[in-house]
């Protein structure tokens, strides 16, 4: 039976592994951490319908049960190829031989420290969108680090995305709708709070996204301002003082808020470039892996028998990631049946 390695145990890796196991292949997931689910594991609810994130992860885990071998705490150290066989040297010291590889290494969140002017990790009430999810573990009002109920909050879009200054020209795609979702969740917990979203563009590209955006405005009174943040400072009472530009009015704007949420974008995962180099896969200027063709061969890399799925080849929503994973499973199936 052909053996397949799936590198990365996030939702893409879990889905592609399950689909390949359904097609009767022997599948190993090589996961560097000791849990499955990747970033989704840390999320509470998902846009646009507020599905609990754990439902998706649990469903994927249940699908995998007893069908896939999971090599936790493992990374690929070195890769070699002999004819159609791929030899992977893993960090646990073992060597594994596979007939195909699917790269599902996903992404890492932009390190907000790189936008020094935003004061992340200097001012305690500047947090990332990922950290805000931890506030949503219960239905209690959102509070500051000083236990003050948040009365005014600003979401800053495109932190580390579409920003040449930090070397990221690409759009991370899901942050706009994530901000709308999170703003609504804040409004539900802090109904009297003033909530501002400062955006470059609002990219509501998928079904129901526009509806959620409209709902945020009409039902929750969330204010959307096309504007860019210049810098964050802290006042004596620990509230945050923002200097912004309203780019529609073309005027500077100053705002004092209790909490700032940085909508951090996606970057290619840690060690992804090294892995791509080891496996002979090209990466784009954005450092995400490049398939042969972005239309009809999205999961096929330039190296025979190596495939890519999910955010390893660029930012995607969970729905898109799962669809991409299924597509990759079919490509692997076709490849192995043709050999």
């Amino acid at each position: 039976m052909p053996r397949i390695a799936v590198i990365g145990g996030g939702v893409a890796g879990m889905e592609v592994a399950f689909r390949l196991s359904q097609l009767s292949f022997e599948v190993d997931i090589i996961e560097k951490s000791f849990i499955l689910g990747g970033h989704v594991h840390k999320w509470q609810k998902l846009f646009p319908d507020f599905t609990p994130a754990h439902q998706i992860v649990d469903q994927l885990k249940n699908q995998l049960r007893d069908k896939v071998n999971i090599l936790f705490g493992n990374e690929v150290i070195k890769a070699e190829q002999e004819n159609t066989k791929h030899i992977l040297y893993l960090s646990d010291g073992t060597t594994q031989v596979y007939d195909a590889i699917v790269i599902t290494t996903g992404f890492k969140l932009f390190n907000a420290n790189r936008k020094e002017e935003y004061g992340y990790s200097v001012y305690p009430n500047v947090i990332t969108s990922s950290e805000l999810e931890e506030y949503f573990q219960n239905d209690k009002p959102i509070i500051t680090k000083e236990n003050r109920i948040v009365e005014r909050i600003a979401f800053i879009h495109c932190v580390g995305s579409r920003d040449e200054k930090v070397g990221n020209r690409h759009c991370s795609k899901v942050c706009c709708i994530t901000a709308v979702k999170q703003a609504i969740e804040v409004a539900q917990r802090n109904p009297d709070a003033e909530i501002y979203l400062f955006y470059m563009d609002l990219r509501m590209f998928d079904r129901k996204f526009e509806d959620l955006y409209l709902q945020a405005q009409t039902e929750y009174g969330i204010k959307f301002v096309r504007g860019r943040l210049s810098e964050v400072s802290e006042k004596a009472d620990s509230r945050l003082f923002l200097k912004l530009e309203d780019t529609l009015l073309g005027k500077p704007l100053r705002l004092t808020v209790d909490l700032v949420v940085l909508m951090v974008g996606m970057e290619t995962a840690e060690n992804s470039i090294q892995l791509a180099n080891a496996l002979g896969i090209p990466v784009g200027q954005d450092n995400f892996m490049l398939p042969v063709n972005c239309h009809s061969q999205k999961n096929i890399t330039g190296n025979r028998g190596i495939f890519v799925a999910g955010c390893a080849s660029g930012p995607k929503s969970i729905g898109e990631t799962l669809a991409d994973a299924r597509s990759a499973a079919l490509e692997v199936y076709s490849y192995l049946n043709c050999n």
Binding site: S121, V122, Y123
Partner: peptide
């Protein structure tokens, strides 16, 4: 304010 954050920048 967290001086640790500043130290990282410094």
């Amino acid at each position: 304010m967290k001086n640790r954050g500043k130290q990282l920048i410094w």
